[in-house]
Design a binder for these strands. Structure first.
Lengths: 147, 147
DNA sequence: ACATATGGTCAAGCTACTTGACCATATGTA
DNA sequence: TACATATGGTCAAGTAGCTTGACCATATGT
């Protein structure tokens, strides 16, 4: 592979990820939720059993302070609650509220909608293959484009 | 595809894109260039013949003011120059300097290096397929994760 | 010729992050 | 036990990189 093709791959990845993220957020907003893209990805970590701020920070690839601020925001908007952690008195368990679950489902619907458009181009099987490859490449990386 | 799998695809895309972007930037910095990830993607638009600020803004998915600020930064660091536009006296053509070309090549090398690691996992052919699929999905989208 | 559109910059403001300091609790070690 | 250190979390302040709004110069259409 030529060097320039590697950069092209990076550009395509960013373009696809950005487009998908935007679609999801638009869909969530269209369904009546006040949010920004980070919410959906926070929710995937908080569901189904909640998570600590530190775990969320790792998942999102930000400092725990930034994650804490995000949780503040989510609490203010009624999507999550801070509860006492059952096994560690220092920690607090952040869990989804009813409305948080609704918003999560809205994000999933919007994501499915966006991916459906890709299936129309590539076919459903190819999209599944694509997902499989991506998961094998970046299985545990933080969900954060950071640029 | 289940709804939650669509979100998983989005997460995998973001994780892969983020990891690749970080690798590229680290590689560029390691080669002695002072930069941030946006530079590389700006360079792909500026090479080979330059571009206007407005074109760059579209490519990066930001306002032209933001693109202009980025160009300021690139000028200050010696990577690009503003020249008179040959066909439009309002516009200015932003072109790479010699050092800008060096930095571009460094970014390409770093990108190739990162992609090589993926080839070790998936095989070179699969990576090429991956790139092909992504290009077909998001051919012209702005290079910007925006979340 | 004039009205409107477009390329670009300047200025100001804001969002989402960072670093640094700090407290409370947990865990390892003598 | 007592103490040192590590970890989870928050508060506060600073900042990078974007935004919106105003404006000028040039181009384009009528």
């Amino acid at each position: 592979m030529q060097n320039s093709e590697a950069l092209a791959l990076a550009a395509a990845l960013l373009a696809a990820a950005g487009e998908l993220t935007r679609h999801i957020n638009d869909g969530v907003v269209a369904r009546g939720f006040d949010g920004r893209p980070a919410y959906g990805f926070a929710f995937t970590r908080l569901a189904p059993d909640g998570a600590t701020v530190t775990e969320l920070a790792t998942h999102l690839g930000v400092t725990k302070q930034a994650a804490s601020q995000l949780v503040d925001e989510l609490v203010r908007k009624g999507y999550v609650e801070r509860r006492a952690h059952p096994a560690d008195a220092r920690a607090r368990l952040v869990v989804l509220t009813g409305r948080g679950w609704e918003c999560t489902r809205a994000a999933e619907e919007a994501a499915a909608e966006a991916v459906r458009a890709w299936s129309d181009v590539l076919g459903e099987g190819e999209v599944a293959v694509l997902r499989d490859r991506l998961v094998r490449i970046a299985p545990h990386g933080p969900i954060r484009p950071t640029w």
